[in-house]
């Protein structure tokens, strides 16, 4: 079937199989390799993307679900070659080691901050509970997200 969607702000119109996973369409048809396939079973979160702003596992979502919807992947975070605040802070906080979990972590964090601009550490931990990281032990990741939230809400508060 024909899938019409917006991916990282750009309209796409492609042919997809009715039972294709969104992950395969992103990676294979659209060449977006940011979302990773870790477990293919909804457990690791490496494939996390945003569908109309909600974090979902692209390995479990049918590609058809994106019809007339907005898909965001990690490739859509940077603007004009400049990393966004979360990406920069992940680097600064040492929240990345092997980097396999990072795209998914960033998308879960992006969804959280859009909904809860000033989350508690517990809320951050809950938001990334579906994103496994076998390198960092999570503390640096939670620090990075918390730092961005603090800065963003401080700058909004000053408006």
């Amino acid at each position: 079937m024909r899938l019409n969607a917006t991916v990282n702000g750009d309209p796409v119109s492609i042919e997809v199989a009715a039972d294709a996973r969104l992950l395969d369409v992103l990676r294979e048809t659209l060449g977006l390799h940011g979302a990773k396939e870790g477990c293919a079973a909804g457990e690791c979160g490496a494939c996390t993307v945003l569908l109309d702003g909600l974090a979902v596992n692209a390995c479990l979502v049918p590609a058809t679900r994106a019809q007339n919807r907005d898909v965001r992947t990690v490739e859509g975070l940077a603007r004009n070659g400049v990393l966004d605040a979360l990406q920069r802070q992940f680097v600064a906080s040492g929240a990345i080691q092997c980097g396999y979990c990072t795209p998914g972590m960033l998308m879960s964090a992006t969804a959280l901050l859009a909904r809860v601009p000033r989350p508690t550490r517990a809320e951050i931990a809950a938001a990334i509970a579906g994103n496994l990281c076998r390198c960092t032990g999570y503390a640096a990741i939670i620090d990075a997200i918390e730092t961005v939230a603090t800065h963003q809400s401080a700058s909004h508060g000053a408006d």
């Binding site: 039972d19 293919a40 909804g42 596992n57 390995c59 479990l60 979502v61 049918p62 058809t64």
Partner: peptide
């Protein structure tokens, strides 16, 4: 519906349904 059970099962088994009702 959400696909969280169904898509996992289809992918793991390689089964292609004749019809998917979304």
């Amino acid at each position: 519906a959400g696909g969280s059970d169904l898509m996992l099962g289809l992918h793991a088994s390689g089964f292609h349904p004749d019809l998917l009702i979304d």
